[in-house]
């Protein structure tokens, strides 16, 4: 801790940390769920590039190991830990592994998401697709929060949940997805109030970015990308590492020390309804 009760590198007059190479998270430890690909992998690589040691927490070694290796190959610290975020034991073990290996925990990013199934109204959603989406968003947010609080309080650190613009505006074709993403926004706002007195900040990112899931959706519906880009003032889909990752870095950094309970929409301006 610094003398004023905050953490991390003191800010300089120009609003930067002054850390060499922009390593504003030097010495910090992060767990990122669902980091084997897509937005999670982009956030993990950005956090690592900013100096954090990163635990890639994902179910499948087939993408978790390469994601960790990619970060290590770039000269940063990363390790893969197998984690099903809907299992309390897995989440607790992942947090314990982060603390044991890197000496503490500063940043938890819960990004993992369940497959939303085929697009359609809620009455057409396959019954068996409902609970897994609730579990991966709501239950897992609870499990990540509960498992990490004791460690985050010590630094104090930050929790970031990945939600979606659909969690604000709803979705005709992915109604369960939109519902569980909205649930995460409610969780963020209330946890921010609950954990603020401990100095632990809680925020959400609502991204739109090109990911394997997005590519699959575009492949199934070629007009989708055109429609998404057409409604995006910046005229393109986001890049997970270059556009979304830095938002997580900022929220985890000293520059965001007075920000909690917020949803940062990182979608090129497509959704402006907050």
């Amino acid at each position: 801790m610094t003398g004023d009760g905050t953490t991390g590198t003191p800010m300089t007059g120009d609003g930067t940390t002054g850390a060499p190479g922009g390593r504003v998270l030097e010495g910090q430890v992060a767990v990122v769920t669902g980091a084997g690909q897509g937005v999670g992998a982009g956030i993990a690589s950005a956090l690592a590039a900013a100096g954090a040691a990163v635990v890639i927490a994902t179910r499948r070694a087939a993408n978790g190991e390469p994601a960790a290796e990619s970060i290590r190959a770039a000269g940063h610290d990363a390790v893969f830990v197998r984690c099903d975020v809907t299992e309390a034991g897995d989440v607790e073990a992942t947090v314990a592994e982060a603390v044991a290996r890197f000496g503490g925990l500063d940043i938890v990013v819960h990004n993992a998401v369940a497959h939303a199934g085929r697009p359609g109204g809620v009455q057409y959603t396959r019954s068996e697709m409902i609970r897994p989406q609730i579990a991966t968003a709501a239950t897992a947010s609870f499990l990540c929060a509960r498992a990490s609080l004791a460690h985050l309080r010590r630094r104090p650190g930050t929790l970031i949940l990945l939600t979606s613009p659909a969690g604000v505006e709803g979705s005709a074709n992915l109604p369960v997805y939109a519902t569980v993403k909205a649930t995460q926004r409610g969780i963020v706002k209330s946890l921010a109030r609950e954990w603020g007195p401990h100095g632990v900040r809680v925020n959400a990112i609502a991204p739109v970015a090109r990911t394997p899931a997005m590519d699959a959706a575009v492949a199934a519906n070629p007009d989708l990308e055109t429609r998404l880009v057409a409604r995006t003032p910046l005229g393109r889909l986001g890049d997970a590492a270059a556009d979304i990752g830095p938002v997580a870095v900022f929220l985890a950094s000293e520059g965001a020390r007075y920000i909690t309970g917020q949803t940062i929409v990182a979608d090129g301006g497509g959704f402006l309804g907050l």
Binding site: G120, G121, V122, A138, S141, F142, A145, A166, G167, V168, E169, G170, S171, A172, N173, L174, P175, A178, T179, V180, K181, A182, T183, Q184, R185, G186, I187, K189, S190, L191, R193, E194
Partner: peptide, 23 residues
């Protein structure tokens, strides 16, 4: 504070209404 589950439930249902309205 201390009503995180209720808050999550409430916000989920509030946006469910929007999704239903759309579809």
């Amino acid at each position: 504070a201390n009503l995180v589950a209720l808050a999550g439930l409430a916000e989920g249902l509030r946006v469910l209404a929007r999704s239903l309205a759309r579809s």
